[in-house]
Amino acid sequence: MSENGSVINNLNLLNSNFPNKIILSREKEELVEIFKNDVPENLQSKCKFISNLNKKDQINIFGLSETKLKNALDRKYTEPFLFEGNKNEKKDLTKILKKNSLTIQEGGRVINLCDNVNKVKSMNRVLKIYTKIESNTKVIAVGDNYNDLDMLKNSDLPCLVFNDQFKEDQINIDNLIISNKPSPEGWADVIKMALVKLDYNV
């Protein structure tokens, strides 16, 4: 059996052995509901959720074709938006979200409303369960933001999606794989590079 087939079988085995979901984040509908209930209207008015915009504006914001737009918007745990306020207003928004166990992540063209999840702990939680059925495990971690760096440092194959906010000499992660392309193509780019390092056929 191929290594890819082995991975699929192990994932199926994981699901059968642990039928309950491993919940690492609340879903975006719950996050948006908290946002609407707890963020003052003056700050809400500065936020434009991408899902509420027309398709033409969505395409312009993401810089994607219409066929790729659906994938960019098909999110379960984050809600992208534009912020049109000043620095002080953004600080106020961040503080209010933090009080409600939410956070914002800046990366690429938009800001994302997210659950306040520790990525390293989440990764290790899944890994602890998975290693019960497969001891020979390598972790590929992919990120495109400063809040991903701890996760990348704690993975076997750290992958960074190209972002002009980063300076490589400031990251200081051993064996870092950096994409040749920016998001969204960069995500597939670094995963392919990592799989090549693992001698997978890609």
Rank of each mutant, 00 (worst) to 15 (best):
M1D: 07
S2Y: 13
E3I: 15
I8G: 10
L11E: 06
L11G: 07
L14H: 09
L14T: 05
L14A: 07
N20Q: 12
K21E: 06
S25I: 01
S25D: 06
R26M: 06
R26V: 03
E29L: 13
L31S: 11
V39F: 09
N42I: 15
L43P: 09
L43E: 11
Q44C: 03
S45A: 15
K48A: 13
I50W: 03
S51N: 13
N52L: 04
N52Q: 13
L53A: 03
K55R: 14
K56H: 04
D57R: 15
Q58C: 02
E66P: 01
T67P: 00
L69A: 05
L69H: 03
N71E: 04
L73W: 03
L73S: 02
Y77G: 00
P80I: 00
F81T: 08
F81N: 03
E84V: 03
N86K: 11
E89N: 12
E89G: 07
K90T: 09
K90L: 14
K90C: 12
K91E: 14
D92C: 02
L93F: 06
K95V: 08
N100D: 01
L102A: 05
L102C: 04
I104D: 01
I104N: 04
G108M: 03
G108R: 05
R109M: 11
D115Y: 02
V117G: 03
K119D: 07
S122L: 01
N124G: 00
N124S: 02
V126M: 08
L127T: 13
Y130Q: 05
I140F: 01
I140D: 04
V142W: 10
V142S: 07
V142H: 10
V142E: 03
G143Y: 01
N147S: 05
N147W: 00
D148N: 02
L149N: 07
P158M: 09
C159Y: 06
N163S: 04
D164S: 15
Q165C: 11
F166C: 04
Q170H: 14
I171Q: 12
I171E: 11
I171N: 11
N172F: 09
D174I: 12
D174M: 13
I177C: 07
N180L: 10
K181Y: 14
P184L: 00
P184S: 00
G186P: 05
W187I: 12
W187M: 10
V190P: 03
L195W: 04
V196L: 12
V202F: 03
